[in-house]
């Protein structure tokens, strides 16, 4: 039976983890590779790096981070942030990423999703959607970290990128991100039920019940969280045990 996935996500800026990872004694809590190794050992099902490096010149540092991670961790790695061109994808995949997440570039140019999927295969193209509930039952795509509205319907957009060849959707409830109040389940369910591809629920996780809800009520097949893991509020093992207890198929030991 296919297991539901728990994915810790690390924000990386100029090759360093933003805010650090404090759940375990790391020699260097700011080194993404050290954090990746710790999560690998802790039983994470996949790992996600989000590159928030502001300048183009510093982007090269991410390739090195990805390369060193792929050398040490034999688990799937998704990298997102600033992916705008076919060459960005190629460089990340060649460095050792398994999947690449496209965010605003998919909004500004739909054809990019199609080109990417045709070039590298749907299996490695994740479209990252930042959604907000703008009115009850109305979900809109936002860009620029949730600051810029696009007027695009999130469910329609998810259908569209699926048809263009995306292999997976990473859906962030922007109205919940950082609040610890849980996913926007109506948004998650609306998108997950509208598409044939897997949906990763993200944004707002504060308790272990939120992870359960993302799968059971949001119909996602994976849940992504950052701070609850990085700050040591919960371990990956605790998250998985809690989800398994709720009747969700989980990969318990590697």
């Amino acid at each position: 039976m296919l297991k539901m996935r728990v994915i810790p996500c690390l924000d990386v800026k100029d090759g360093r983890v933003v805010k650090g990872v404090n759940f375990i004694d790391l020699r260097d809590a700011g080194d993404p590779v050290e954090a990746a190794k710790a999560y690998d050992k802790a039983g994470a099902d996949e790992l996600c790096f989000l590159d928030i490096t502001a300048t183009h010149e510093n982007r090269g540092t991410m390739f090195d981070v990805v390369r060193r991670t792929a050398e040490a961790c034999f688990m799937p790695l998704t990298v997102g942030g600033g992916v705008r061109a076919i060459d960005d994808i190629r460089n990340l995949l060649l460095s050792g990423a398994d999947k690449v997440a496209i965010n605003s570039a998919a909004v500004s140019r739909r054809a990019f999703v199609k080109e990417a999927a045709e070039k590298f295969g749907s299996q490695c193209i994740v479209v990252s959607i930042d959604g907000k509930e703008t009115a009850p039952g109305k979900f809109e795509v936002f860009t620029h970290g949730g600051r810029k509205e696009t007027g695009i319907d999130a469910v329609e957009f998810a259908r569209e990128v699926t048809a263009l060849g995306a292999g997976e959707i990473m859906l962030t409830s922007m109205d919940r991100d950082g609040t610890g109040k849980g996913f926007n389940l109506a948004l998650t369910r609306a998108v997950a039920d509208a598409v044939s591809i897997p949906v990763i629920a993200s944004g707002g996780v504060g308790t272990l019940d939120h992870l359960v809800e993302g799968i059971k009520e949001g119909h996602a097949t994976a849940v992504l969280a950052a701070s609850i893991f990085h700050f040591g509020t919960f371990t990956i093992a605790q998250a998985k045990a809690h989800m398994a207890k709720a009747g969700i198929p989980m990969r318990m030991a590697t």
Binding site: M1, L2, K3, M4, R5, D45, S122, Q123, G167, E168, S196, I197, P198, V199, T221, A222, R251
Partner: peptide, 11 residues
Amino acid sequence: ALKIPHMGWNT
């Protein structure tokens, strides 16, 4: 209801 691709960990 099962998603395609078959993506993730399976026995």
